[in-house]
Simulated assay, not measured.
Amino acid sequence: MAVDSTDDLEAVLGYETIAVVGCSSTPGKAAHNVPKYMLEHGYDIIPVNPFADEIFGREAADTLADVAETIDVVCVFRPSEEVSDIVDAALERDDVDAIWMQSGIRDDDAAARAEADGRTVVQDRCLKVEHRRLVA
């Protein structure tokens, strides 16, 4: 389902484990600061970045397929043109309930595929902004 309502956003923010594709080890970048904020607010953050060994003291997975833990939400910090492949990787997993594309990131075709597979999809919204607005 596509998420537009406050209730739907709050439901996604109720999940605990977030795999962050494109998570950055560089402080100051949104792809670092947003997951760090979520970690500081009690979320289990799994960094996914093939160019980093570890982020936030956790081993970084190269791909979603390499994540051994259960994932509730896949948060995407990659360009829109990479979303389709990331969504396909998320759909290969039975544990992913939601896919969240950060501000400025969207792929309507990939979102439709995910929604057709029963996953919740948020596009073009900042996880940190919505958490601050609705939960914090």
Rank of each mutant, 00 (worst) to 15 (best):
M1T: 13
A2F: 15
A2M: 14
A2L: 15
A2P: 04
S5F: 13
D7K: 06
D8R: 05
L9T: 06
E10A: 10
E10R: 12
V12F: 01
V12N: 01
G14R: 02
G14D: 06
G14F: 02
Y15L: 11
Y15I: 01
Y15S: 05
T17L: 07
T17K: 07
I18H: 04
I18K: 03
A19K: 06
V20S: 11
V21F: 10
V21Y: 05
V21P: 01
G22K: 05
S24C: 07
S25I: 06
S25V: 08
S25Y: 12
T26V: 14
T26S: 13
P27N: 13
K29G: 11
K29H: 12
A30S: 15
A31D: 04
H32N: 15
H32E: 12
V34S: 11
P35S: 15
P35G: 12
K36S: 14
M38D: 03
L39Q: 15
L39S: 15
E40Q: 14
E40L: 11
H41L: 12
G42Q: 06
Y43A: 10
Y43V: 11
Y43I: 09
I46L: 11
P47L: 08
P47D: 13
V48C: 03
N49P: 08
F51P: 00
F51T: 07
F51E: 14
F51L: 11
E54Q: 14
E54P: 00
E54R: 11
F56L: 10
F56Q: 10
F56P: 08
R58F: 01
R58A: 09
E59P: 00
E59G: 01
E59N: 04
A60E: 03
A61E: 00
A61D: 00
D62F: 04
L64P: 00
L64F: 10
D66L: 03
A68Q: 09
A68G: 00
A68N: 08
I71F: 04
I71Q: 04
D72N: 07
D72Q: 00
D72Y: 09
D72C: 00
V73D: 06
V74K: 04
V74F: 04
V74T: 06
V76F: 00
F77A: 09
R78N: 12
R78S: 12
R78V: 13
P79W: 11
S80T: 09
S80Q: 10
E81L: 00
E81T: 00
V83Y: 04
S84F: 09
D85R: 10
I86L: 09
I86F: 05
V87A: 02
D88F: 01
D88M: 03
D88T: 09
A89R: 06
L91E: 06
E92I: 08
E92M: 06
E92K: 15
R93I: 06
D94T: 14
D94V: 01
D94Y: 10
D95P: 08
D95E: 10
D95M: 12
D97N: 12
A98L: 03
A98R: 06
I99M: 05
